[in-house]
């Protein structure tokens, strides 16, 4: 290694670690705050490391607040949205790639159209629609809303994977005795599994973290997800329950972090595919 390339590498390392620290610090602060005793939260000067560690905020959150109820709502919403988006996305992408019908390409472009409009433009008509259909203030309203903006991405991502699966494989399966649906399950689905996983992770994260639509479409505790629920119960005009808020944030982040850690490689492959293929 030459002296110049060595210096370059050191500078690159410093810059990289600075960015990593700047990104990680709020998360670290969140975790540390959630295990600090209440009296240590507002000391001056602020203390980074707690003198003693406590889990009382977690206990308080789980025992005396509707946190678990909201958690359950979020789990149902994110999982249902993911399942719905996967079923519609896989079948839709298959149709876009394998069947030829008039306006196929236009349709594929049209589904992206919703991304061109700001959420605030879409949310009010969507709310009125939910009221008319009679599903306003329900978990279903959020599942439908999240599906509308997750599905276009899923369609395009899965379409790229589907297009990369040779049609000959399906023909071969048909000749080998499979039905069209059998060929789809036996041959096509295994080929697009990375796409399915990355779509699922993306959709679940969107459904888990979404705040704006949840705020507008749901104003009852019977269907409130974690994002708006936590805000509603811990942040008021007069007070912010910082320690509980941080404990709630940690627990909210855990499922997403776990999913991301285990399926990271599929997720990055999916993002790469959506950019390169299709």
């Amino acid at each position: 290694m030459t002296r110049r390339s060595g210096a370059k590498s050191i500078v690159a390392t410093i810059v990289t670690w600075s960015v990593v620290l700047a990104t990680v610090f709020p998360l670290l602060w969140m975790v540390i705050t959630s295990i600090k005793p209440q009296q240590e939260l507002f000391t001056i000067p602020p203390m980074f490391w707690p003198r003693s560690v406590t889990l009382e905020h977690y206990r308080e959150l789980l025992e005396n607040t509707p946190f678990l109820k909201y958690f359950g709502h979020s789990l149902v919403i994110a999982s249902s949205t993911t399942a719905l988006v996967l079923v519609l996305g896989v079948l839709g992408a298959y149709s876009l790639v394998r069947f030829s019908y008039p306006g196929r390409e236009r349709l594929a472009l049209l589904v992206l159209f919703t991304y061109l409009l700001p959420s605030v433009v879409l949310v009010l008509p969507l709310y009125l629609l939910m009221v008319k259909v009679g599903v306003a203030n329900t978990l279903l309203s959020l599942v439908i809303a999240y599906t509308t903006f997750s599905l276009p991405y899923a369609l395009w991502l899965l379409r790229a994977f589907m297009a990369g699966t040779p049609e000959d494989l399906e023909w071969a399966a048909l000749v080998d005795g499979a039905s069209r649906l059998g060929a789809f399950f036996d041959v096509v689905l295994p080929q697009i599994l990375p796409g399915i996983i990355s779509t699922a992770v993306f959709t679940f994260i969107v459904g888990w973290n979404e705040y704006f639509y949840a705020l507008v479409l749901v104003n009852s505790d019977s269907a409130r997800p974690l994002t708006t629920g936590v805000m509603n119960m811990l942040i008021t005009s007069f007070n912010i329950e910082w320690s509980l808020l941080m404990a709630a944030s940690v627990m909210m982040s855990l499922p997403v972090i776990v999913i991301f850690v285990f399926l990271q490689s599929h997720l990055t492959r999916g993002f790469a595919a959506s950019g390169v293929k299709g």
């Binding site: 000959d168 036996d186 295994p190």
Partner: peptide
């Protein structure tokens, strides 16, 4: 008749082997 009921077998130009199956599984598939 659908392809599977014609009592035929086909070898494709691309071979069309199922990538996620082993050689034995490929041969056993029909």
């Amino acid at each position: 008749l659908p392809p599977g009921k014609r009592d035929i077998a086909m070898v494709f130009q691309s071979y069309a082997l199922y990538p996620h199956m082993t050689v034995a599984q490929n041969i056993a598939y029909p």
